[in-house]
Every structure is written in structure tokens, then in C-alpha cells.
């Protein structure tokens, strides 16, 4: 079908209703035409009919935005106005919100919630609940010692890093104690590993009860435990260690129907010092103090002192 030639009028003499009628005629012709003649949309034509140009621009934007959305391209912005384009922009905006929220979830923020995408919102929110539950479970698995159910070495080290930051930034004191069960090997050798496990569980339970909520007591490895006491000087830490020692001394450990043991620990204590370069320095001194406690009779607390 041939498209009739269009005779443009001068813009300032055109009746608005005429323009609308003519514009609609052109659109209808174009819609029924197998191809649009290249010479139809000329610049002078568009300049003469700004309303038609506006419609063309809007249609172009609708076309481009819908095409972009269909492939998930969310970074194209369009400035034409109108209901259809605005709805597409609304969809684009919602998808961009969703992208932002998904990024936040990826960063570990499980408080994100979607309430603007119908059924998808419910699915997204359900996914976040499941992710949060899994995250809590995994964090626990990664940070809790499976046998004793107290913090493991990884959790202790993370806590040490955070606690030591306060030593450097706020001049806070940090005390660390290392506890080792005396003659633990003989428990395993004499009564078997189940008895050894029972001792570890009971000792960890008794000792951890001596610490404040702001401290951390965990299993450092084997039969060794560590207490980390932020904002605590060595005198207080020594008192906590002595209290822990006393508590354990008076606690019977039932390892089987016929065997009840009494176990003791040796404890080394040290505190942060101005020349320290990391928490490792305090751990090293506490370890030396523990060695002293072991060397000088066990079942006692030794505070690090310079030789």
C-alpha cells in the first residue's frame, strides 16, 4: 500500500484538532504499512509538527525501554512522559530496587524485605527467611566447638581481633588467659576417649561459667582453653582465673557409672602492653605464664612477669 504524500502546514497556522486528525491518520497508515518509507520522517516535517515528534519520541522510548527491560537492562533512563512509559519506568524502578536489595542480602543484610512485586515479594521474603536461618546455622557451626558447645578457635581469634582494635584505638586494656587441663592424656589412656570427652565437656562448662557476657571463653585446641577479657586489667583477670580454678577443684566429673574424677587446670594470664604489635604478643606471654604454672606444680594461676 502506498503512503499518500503529506503536505505539511506552517505550524503557527495549524488548527490543533487538524494536527491530531492528521497525526492519527499518519499513525494508522504507518501501522498498516509493511514498511515505512525512508523519506517520510524528515527533520523539517518533524519540526513542523512538534506534537507528532513528541508522539514519535514517546513511542521510541516505550520501544527502547520495553526492549531493555526484556533483557534485564536496567540502566537506561528515559525522560518522555506518559502513562505507558511511566508504568514501564515503574517496573524498571522496582527491578532496580530488587537488585539493590539482592546486593544488600549478598552482603549479609537479611533484614531486606520486598513488598512491591506481588507473588514475587512473598517468594523473595521467604527466601530471605531461609537464608537467614541457614546463615545462623552456618555461623554457629563455624564458630562453636562441636564437642563442648563453647566458642572454637576461629571464634576466639575473631574476638581477639575485635578486642585488640579497642586496645589500639581507645587505649582499653585486654587480658588473656590460657588454661590447660592437668594430666589430661592420662584420662584418655586410662579410661578411654569417651571419658576424655566427658572431662572436656565438664571442664569447659565449669570454667565458662566464671566469665562475664562481655568476655569470651572458648576451646583453643585439644585440652587447652582460652579466656579473652576485654577492658580488664591483669589483677581482675587473675581473680577470675583463681575463681575458675576453685570452681573446678570442687566439681566432681562423672565419666562412667563407676568412675568419678576430679580434675585441675593450670592457667597463664597476661595483659596488653604499650609495645605490643598485635594480640599475638599477649597470647605469647599468657602461654609463657602457662608454662610457668605447669613447671611450678600445676593446678595454679601464673601471671606473666618479665624475667
Amino acid at each position: 500500500m502506498d503512503i499518500p504524500p503529506f503536505v505539511p502546514r506552517k505550524h503557527n497556522k495549524v488548527n490543533e484538532n487538524q494536527v491530531i486528525t492528521e497525526t492519527l491518520q499518519i499513525i494508522l497508515t504507518l501501522l498498516s504499512s509493511p514498511k515505512i518509507p525512508a523519506n517520510l520522517i524528515r527533520e523539517d516535517f518533524l519540526n513542523d509538527y512538534p506534537d507528532f515528534k513528541k508522539i514519535c519520541d514517546t513511542i521510541k522510548d516505550v520501544r527502547d525501554l520495553s526492549a531493555a527491560l526484556s533483557v534485564g537492562e536496567l540502566h537506561k533512563f528515559f525522560y518522555s512522559k506518559g502513562y505507558i512509559l511511566s508504568n514501564l519506568k515503574g517496573l524498571q524502578s522496582n527491578l532496580r530496587h530488587l537488585t539493590y536489595q539482592a546486593q544488600k542480602v549478598a552482603e549479609g543484610d537479611f533484614t531486606q524485605k520486598v513488598d512491591f512485586l506481588g507473588d514475587f515479594s512473598a517468594a523473595f521474603n521467604e527466601m530471605i527467611i531461609k537464608l537467614r536461618e541457614s546463615s545462623v546455622k552456618l555461623t554457629r557451626l563455624a564458630n562453636v566447638d562441636a564437642l563442648t558447645q563453647i566458642p572454637n578457635r576461629l571464634a576466639l581469634e575473631q574476638f581477639l581481633v575485635e578486642s585488640y582494635k579497642l586496645v589500639k584505638s581507645a587505649g582499653k586494656k585486654l587480658s588473656i588467659m590460657i588454661c590447660d587441663i592437668d594430666f589430661f592424656k592420662s584420662v584418655n589412656d586410662t579410661y578411654g576417649h569417651d571419658a576424655g570427652d566427658a572431662v572436656l565437656i565438664k571442664v569447659s562448662s565449669v570454667l565458662s561459667n566464671q566469665f562475664r557476657g562481655s568476655d569470651m571463653f572458648g576451646r583453643y585446641g585439644g585440652e587447652e582453653f582460652m579466656g579473652v577479657l576485654p577492658n580488664t586489667d591483669v589483677q581482675i583477670a587473675e581473680k577470675v582465673a583463681s575463681r575458675a580454678l576453685d570452681a573446678l577443684r570442687t566439681t566432681p566429673i562423672i565419666v562412667s557409672e563407676s568412675v568419678t574424677l576430679h580434675k585441675t587446670v593450670s592457667i597463664g594470664v597476661s595483659m596488653s602492653m604499650p609495645d605490643d604489635t598485635g594480640y599475638e604478643d599477649i597470647v605469647k606471654r599468657s602461654d609463657e605464664a602457662l608454662y610457668m604454672a605447669k613447671e611450678t606444680g600445676r593446678n595454679k594461676v601464673c601471671v606473666y612477669s618479665k624475667k
Binding site: 525522560y79 512522559k81 511511566s86 524502578s93
Partner: peptide
């Protein structure tokens, strides 16, 4: 503001 109720959008951007 790049989108507004007054320009046909249904949210302010």
C-alpha cells in the same frame, strides 16, 4: 526529581 506523578509516573524518582 526525574519522574513524578505529575509527569505520568506513579512514584517519585
Amino acid at each position: 526529581e526525574i519522574d513524578c506523578w505529575t509527569t505520568g509516573a506513579r512514584t517519585c524518582r
